[in-house]
Design a protein around this nucleic acid. Structure first.
Lengths: 221, 221
DNA sequence: TTCCGCAATCTTGTATGGTAGATGCATTTT
DNA sequence: AAAATGCATCTACCATACAAGATTGCGGAA
C-alpha cells in the first residue's frame, strides 16, 4: 500500500541506497550523513533526507536526532520475527492455493520450476534467485493476495542481508526439490502436505543465523 | 522496525493527521496540501511534507506529483488483504501460545477479559476498544513476536476506518465470549480449538464491508 | 597523569524561496 | 456554437540558509 513517486530524485536515492545496504556495500554500523550522500549523488540534502525517512521506516536506517544516521545493525530478534511473519503469511497462502487449486495452477508452477532448473544448470545464481522469489510471489498471486507478498518482500530485505553474508552455501538442487514437493501437494489439493512442505522449505535456512553472528559479530546488535 | 523521532514537529503532525484520518475527520477523497496543513498547525511546510511521506508509506495518503495530496480512499481489496495478513499472523501466534502455554498465561488473559467486562458494564466503549487491542497484543507478546503485532497495527488503520463508519454495531458481549473461548483453549493447550476460535473471532466483522460500501460509496475506490 | 570544561565542528530539524508541471477557466479562433 | 489555446493559479519538488543539540578534542587545572 505504500506509494512513492517514480521519477523524482528522492526516489532514485532510495533505490540506490537500498541496493547498497542489502548488498552490504554499506555495512551495518556505517555512519552516513545527509550531506555525504547528497554530495556523492550531486543533489541537495532535501531529497536525501526524504530517502532517509523512507529507509528508516523500512528498518534499514536509524536516524539519531541531532547526532547522525547509521546503517542499522541486523537484529537477530528482528530476523527471527521477520521469519515468523513470512512463515505465517506463506503458510496461509499455500493453504488457500491448495484448498481450491485451479486447473492451470500446476502448469504455472511446473513451468517456473523448469526455468529454475535451467538457471541452476547454467550456474546463473542471480537468475536462480530471481526465479525463486518469483515462485513465492506467484503463489501469493494465485491466492489473490499479491500485496501480502510485497509485505514479505519488505521484510525479506533483513533476511537478504544475512543471506548475502553466507552466499554460496544454499543448495539450488535442494530448493528445487522442495519447490517440486510444494507444487505437487498443491496440485493434488493436499493442504496438510502443502503446508508441511512450505514450512520445511522456509525452515531450511534457519540454522545459518547463529554461525553468521559468530562470523560477523560487528554487523549484529 | 520503522523508526521515527519523537519530540519533533514532524512527529506531532504525523500523529495528528493519522488520528484525523482514522477517525474520519479527514474523509477519504479529501484534498489537502502541505500549505494548508502547515498553516493549520502553525508550522512550516517542511515537517508537514515529511509527515505526508510517512503517511503515504502507510497507505493513508496519496501524493500526486505536481497536483495535490488526497486522503486515500479505502480500497475494498486492500481491506480484504489486510484482513488476510492479520488472520495469518494472529493464527500463527495463537498456535504458538497454545502449543506451549506458560503457567501464568491463563491468568494474564483472564485478567484482561475481566477488565473488558468491567469496561463493557460501564459502557466505556473507548476503554473497551483499547482493552480489546491489548488482548491481541498480549498474545503477540506471549508468543515472543511483539513486533508482529506492530505490523498488524499498521494495517489495522485501514480496518479501523471501516469500523468507524459502522460504529455501535459491534457487540461487546459477543467479543468477550469469544475472547473467553480463545483463552480457555490456550490454557488447555488445545491448538486446534484455539486456532478455530481465533479464526471465528476475526471472521465476525467480515460481513459488514459490503454494506458499508453501499452506505458510503464515495469513501471507497 | 588525570580530570574537567569549553569551544569548534559535526549532525539533523526547520524555514523559506524558487521551479516545473498540471489543472481549470477565460478568451480567442474556426 | 464548439473547439482550441493561452494564462492565472494551484501543486509538490528541490535547493539553500539558519537554528539547535550532540560530539569531539584540545587545553588548562588539580
Amino acid at each position: 500500500m505504500g506509494e512513492t513517486l517514480e521519477g523524482t530524485i528522492a526516489f532514485r536515492v532510495v533505490g540506490a541506497l537500498r541496493d547498497d545496504i542489502v548488498s552490504m556495500v554499506l555495512k551495518p554500523g556505517d555512519v552516513i550523513s545527509e550531506s555525504d550522500i547528497a554530495a556523492r549523488y550531486g543533489v541537495s540534502r532535501q531529497p536525501v533526507r526524504e530517502a532517509f525517512i523512507r529507509l528508516a521506516q523500512q528498518g534499514l536506517l536509524l536516524i539519531r536526532p541531532k547526532r547522525a544516521t547509521v546503517v542499522k545493525k541486523i537484529s537477530p530478534d528482528g530476523v527471527r520475527q521477520s521469519r515468523f511473519i513470512r512463515e505465517s503469511i506463506e503458510v496461509e497462502i499455500i493453504r488457500r492455493v491448495a484448498t481450491d487449486p485451479k486447473p492451470e495452477t500446476g502448469q504455472i508452477l511446473d513451468d517456473l520450476i523448469a526455468d529454475q532448473e535451467a538457471a541452476s544448470s547454467a550456474n546463473d545464481s542471480r537468475r536462480f534467485h530471481k526465479l525463486d522469489e518469483l515462485f513465492h510471489r506467484t503463489l501469493a498471486r494465485l491466492a489473490g493476495v499479491e500485496y501480502a507478498w510485497q509485505l514479505i518482500d519488505d521484510h525479506k530485505m533483513q533476511l537478504d542481508r544475512v543471506r548475502y553474508l553466507t552466499l554460496g552455501v544454499s543448495s539450488s538442487q535442494r530448493a528445487i526439490a522442495e519447490h517440486k514437493q510444494i507444487a505437487k501437494a498443491v496440485s493434488k489439493g493436499d493442504v496438510v502436505a502443502a503446508e508441511a512442505a512450505m514450512r520445511a522449505h522456509l525452515a531450511r535456512a534457519e540454522v545459518l543465523l547463529s554461525q553468521t553472528i559468530e562470523d560477523f559479530p560487528d554487523y549484529f546488535e
